[in-house]
């Protein structure tokens, strides 16, 4: 699967952009949190596409945001 870049993303319809990002993010998140991957991906997809692209390129950023999302998720479910 070729890497997703900003140009490729911008050429996709707006609705499809989130889908493309989600399809890339989900397996990465699933590796760390198999049970919460769908929810976490859903939360992260509400962020800007620019930030999501950055997270795909930077595992540190992704992990930081995933940790944040889990904290929010747990607070919400409590």
């Amino acid at each position: 699967q070729e890497p997703l870049d900003a140009t490729m993303l911008a050429s996709a319809p707006l609705m499809d952009q989130k889908q493309l990002l989600g399809e890339r993010l989900y397996p990465l998140i699933q590796a760390y949190h198999p049970n919460l991957a769908g929810k976490i991906t859903g939360m992260l997809l509400e962020m800007d596409n620019t930030e999501l692209l950055h997270m795909l390129e930077s595992p540190e950023s992704l992990h930081a945001k995933v940790d944040e999302a889990i904290a929010v998720l747990k607070a919400h479910q409590a």
Partner: peptide, 22 residues
């Protein structure tokens, strides 16, 4: 009250409908 359906869940291969305003 909190929306119990939040956050919207992403499923691979299923069209994403999480965002209301796009």
């Amino acid at each position: 009250g909190n929306n119990i359906n939040w956050p919207p869940e992403f499923c691979p291969g299923v069209p994403w409908k999480g965002l209301q305003n796009i």
